[in-house]
């Protein structure tokens, strides 16, 4: 029997595979296709105070081994979520993490405080890293002081797990990881999408309506691994690895470089049961190698730090 669970600020996750915000709706969309109770956790679509229409089409573009998106945080708004979506999520036997996106410090606080009053939310993931909105998003996530301020402010409002989702679109993600740890975050999610673009050469126009978008999928896995590894060198809080995970092998790479858990994102668009399959595969790996607790794999990669170029900037 392999121990798969882990705990974050007193909340137990049954396994180390969550589904990423924005890739699994509010859970009920695919309940007929996958047993969501077998997931370690569900991160909801980003919630803002008011409903958001999102960006005009075109919002998605397929790219080699990945996709660009510019959804623009389209969501039902926190009140509708509480009324219409949360009742279903309360019936699901897994950890529910409300992902919050906002365009001001005030809005982050208001959304979180309203959710604090509800039953059924186990923790929060704060999106300071959406590349597809003009206000909030990356303007917060690429500003270390602002990211720290948001973290500290939300920390004062909740005793539940507080996870900050970081962007890779900065010079040194380790600085941001350190800052949010100091501000009281319980964990960091690494990484959100990578800013990218694609061009229609026939129309001589960008393919996405917003010109640039966020790249996700296997194309960004090597970037994500390097960012998790970098962050793991400087923080002691758990890291949730995200970026192009399609298989258990991918997830195990993230654990080995220092992630405590992972989130499956874009893969859900191709197969909504990917998360469940990844969790199964990790269990088989542990059995095969005689690992009694998946936690033993976290940061267990053997590497010669002497040769690590990364060390020079940490």
């Amino acid at each position: 029997m392999v121990k798969e669970s882990f705990t974050l600020r007193g909340v137990e996750f049954k396994n180390r595979v969550l589904v990423a915000s924005g890739t699994f709706g509010y859970g009920n969309e695919v309940k007929e296709l996958v047993d969501v109770n077998l997931l370690g956790g569900i991160c909801t679509k980003s919630l803002s105070w008011k409903p958001r229409d999102g960006n005009p089409p075109r919002r998605i573009v397929e790219t080699p081994s990945g996709m660009l998106n510019s959804i623009g945080l389209a969501n039902v708004g926190v009140e509708y979520f509480i009324r219409e979506k949360l009742p279903y999520l309360r019936t699901v036997e897994t950890v529910i993490i409300a992902n919050i996106a906002a365009s001001s410090l005030q809005e982050y606080g208001d959304v979180l405080s309203l959710l604090e009053k509800q039953e059924g939310i186990d923790g929060y993931e704060i999106n300071v890293s959406c590349p597809n909105v003009k206000e909030g998003g990356l303007s917060f996530g690429t500003d270390c002081a602002k990211t720290k301020e948001i973290t500290a402010s939300l920390r004062r409002r909740t005793e539940k797990p507080l996870i900050i989702k970081l962007t890779p679109n900065v010079t040194h993600i380790s600085e941001f990881a350190r800052a949010v740890q100091e501000a009281g975050a319980d964990a960091i999610s690494v990484i959100n999408t990578v800013v990218g673009m694609a061009v229609d050469i026939h129309k001589k126009k960008p393919k996405l309506s917003t010109v640039t978008g966020g790249l996700s999928g296997p194309a960004i896995k090597p970037i994500a691994l390097a960012k998790v590894y970098e962050a793991a060198q400087v923080v002691s809080i758990p890291i949730i690895g995200i970026g192009g995970i399609m298989t258990a092998e991918d997830a195990l790479e993230f654990l080995l470089v220092g992630a405590t858990a992972v989130q499956v994102g874009t893969a859900n668009f191709i197969d909504p049961s990917t998360g469940v399959k990844v969790a199964e595969g990790m269990r088989s790996y542990a059995e095969r190698y005689g690992v009694s607790d998946l936690g033993q794999l976290v940061g267990a990669m053997e590497s010669n730090k002497e040769f690590s170029v990364l060390q020079s900037w940490l």
Binding site: T23, I60, F269
Partner: peptide, 30 residues
């Protein structure tokens, strides 16, 4: 037709402008 990834309402990738209700977009897939 819509540029869609999932086809089941997860990705929000296939909006079409709608004249109905308060929402600006409907999803082609669902």
């Amino acid at each position: 037709e819509g540029d869609m990834a999932c086809g089941v309402g997860l990705c929000q990738g296939c909006p079409v402008e709608t004249t109905k209700g308060e929402r600006k977009y409907a999803l082609v897939c669902i």
